[in-house]
Design a protein around this nucleic acid. Structure first.
Lengths: 249, 249
DNA sequence: GACCCGTAACTGGTCAGACCAGTGGACTAG
DNA sequence: CTAGTCCACTGGTCTGACCAGTTACGGGTC
């Protein structure tokens, strides 16, 4: 008896999307390359132009290609971007499918791991790079909070690079962006921000010390603690349990 | 001097997408509701049907709506789902030239964190649930490796559920799927798989012990160690450093 | 009255052909 | 060799049509 599979109607534009995504996955299509023009695709896929266009719209909304009117080279294959990933995550966060607590827990995990890896894998030059972002943070305190925030991001990005794990790096970046967009308005109203910045700088300095010492576990623990201290006030009290579970070992 | 903004052409179908997404964000459109039929939308938005359809294709590919031919109620607003997030993440994992080592490191981080959270947050009923998946694993050993593998997945999914962090859960699931797809062929050829399964079962049992004891740190460490033991042979030796950095504290 | 079934009015999926406002390369005049 | 014009071609949008499938309705049967 043959093992029949449930059939599902696959629409024409979907098969076009699949073909293009497959070509991208197996490397026969690489970012920077151009797709043939819509009218050319019409004859290659043997479908109407509406169908081709629906496929292109889907690819475009997924950040795979970009069409520009009048461009004689045709639609462009874009390099991978985390923008669509962030869009989806933001969407989920907006509808409470993801709570702030979940996002922050995730940040604590990601950032902690990145720093743990960094403290083991860093070269001396990379340590210097990280220390320089600390210097930039200190300088930014005297400018304004936005500058400090930017320098803070630079610190975390430098550490993430050192961790040599691009997946970790991307996830980190995305979730950091989402968290910031969720609470940026609240942070802007924070009083006594200078004290906050000094405190944050002190925390970061401790982390760098642990990185220098190669003490990955301590560095990770400090990082998670810092994130908790920094964000806990924005999280409803009953949702703080999971966050604490990540810091007390 | 007015602060001019760069203008960017907003295409008609994009404004339709925006309007529908906004309606969804502010609650005037909720999952389960139906959109008017395409021809009805044509007159409401005062555009052609192609334009409406391109907007619907975009929304559909983002998991916002679903169209079914012949449905007199029109396109359905879907409940929010993490499926599109997973799709984007899988794309990231496929495209972003991720090495097996990076993926496994990521799994070690994710799974470790999930188990750490689970051991602190679990209820007694949930502990029983997890223990039952262990029983299933033991039983599956006598069937075949595929059954064992399935039971193993069930174990990790149960733990991820207990961690009460759906983002962690999704990432976990995605990266597990990607890793498995990369090495499934090699595993299938593994000799003496019964011994492997018994070893794996012993490891899982230790983890459950740590969960029962509420020792999150130990549980996480065990988990990472187990994953390392299980996967290290598939990772080229020079790439194992980052993995080891995650286990020896 | 309850039930079954065919029909007709829809639905979405696809197609063909058309127009428009742009782009960019080729071609020409200086 | 340069500056300017022109035109072929691009994507964005529209119109109108056909098809296959779904569903609700109404008429017929029991």
């Amino acid at each position: 008896m043959p093992n029949f599979q449930p059939v599902q109607t696959v629409r024409a534009y979907q098969r076009i999307v699949e073909q293009i995504e497959d070509a991208l996955a197996d490397g026969s299509l690489v970012p920077g390359q151009r797709l043939p023009s819509e009218r050319e695709l019409v004859s290659q896929f043997a479908v109407s132009r509406s169908t081709v266009r629906e496929a292109l719209r889907v690819l475009e909304s997924n950040g795979v290609v970009r069409s520009r009117p009048g461009d004689p080279n045709g639609p462009e294959i874009l390099p991978f971007s985390q923008a669509p990933l962030r869009k989806q995550m933001t969407r989920l966060a907006r509808v409470d499918e993801l709570t702030l607590s979940e996002l922050i827990a995730f940040r604590m995990i990601m950032d902690g791991a990145a720093i743990q890896l960094a403290s083991r894998l860093r070269t001396d030059e990379q340590l210097v790079e990280v220390e320089q972002t600390l210097v930039a943070m200190r300088a930014a305190i005297d400018v304004d909070f936005a500058a400090f925030s930017e320098a803070d991001v630079a610190f975390h990005e430098a550490v993430a690079r050192v961790s040599r794990n691009s997946l970790l790096q991307t996830c980190n970046e995305v979730v950091r962006g989402v968290v910031l967009s969720l609470i940026s308005d609240k942070i802007a109203h924070a009083t006594n921000s200078r004290a906050l910045m000094l405190e944050s700088l002190r925390h970061h300095t401790e982390v760098v010390e642990a990185i220098r010492a190669g003490n990955g576990h301590a560095a990770a623990r400090l990082t998670r603690q810092n994130l908790y201290d920094y964000y806990a006030t924005y999280v409803p009290a009953p949702e703080r349990d999971p966050l604490r579970a990540l810091i007390d070992d």
